[in-house]
Amino acid sequence: MIKYDKLWETMALRGITQYMLVKDYHVSKSLLHRLRNNQGVNMNTIDTLCTILHCNIEDIATHYDGDEE
């Protein structure tokens, strides 16, 4: 399972809000919904977020094996 908890921390450190992602970077609200609910997104999305936030993949997502959290 992939979780995006680190995304919100990285956004806070960079001073970027969800509102800014929608209005300034044209990220869809449905994509934000998927990220908030740890649903699947494609690698192009992760690449875009890394570019916006000037960070690495591990600053956005964490992989957990099975039921491990």
Rank of each mutant, 00 (worst) to 15 (best):
R14M: 06
D24E: 13
A12Q: 15
D24M: 06
T17K: 00
G66E: 12
G66V: 01
G40D: 15
L32G: 06
R36L: 11
R14D: 00
D47V: 02
K3N: 12
H33Q: 11
K23D: 14
I46F: 02
E9D: 12
L35Q: 05
E9F: 12
G40H: 14
W8H: 01
M43T: 10
N56A: 09
E58C: 06
D65T: 06
K6L: 09
T45M: 04
Q39Y: 08
D5M: 04
S28A: 05
M43A: 13
K3T: 10
I46Y: 01
C50P: 04
D47P: 00
K6W: 02
T48F: 09
S30P: 03
I46Q: 01
V27L: 14
Q39R: 15
N44T: 05
I60D: 04
T45C: 08
G15I: 05
E58S: 12
G66N: 08
Y19A: 13
H26R: 12
M20K: 14
N37A: 10
I60W: 05
N42R: 08
V41L: 10
N37Y: 07
I60Y: 06
Y64K: 06
H33K: 12
I2T: 04
C55A: 03
S28K: 02
L13V: 04
L31Q: 12
G40W: 04
R34W: 01
L53C: 06
E69K: 11
M20R: 12
I46K: 00
T10N: 12
A12W: 09
H33L: 05
I16G: 03
M1C: 05
A12E: 15
E58R: 11
R34F: 08
Y19Q: 11
I2N: 10
K6D: 13
H33G: 07
R36T: 15
V27T: 09
Q39A: 02
Q18Y: 01
D47T: 07
L49F: 14
L49K: 02
S28F: 02
H54N: 11
H63N: 03
L35H: 08
K29E: 14
D5E: 15
H33V: 07
I52T: 02
D59T: 03
K29R: 13
T17V: 03
E68T: 13
K3Y: 09
M43F: 09
L35V: 08
S30F: 03
T17C: 05
M1I: 06
M11C: 11
T45P: 05
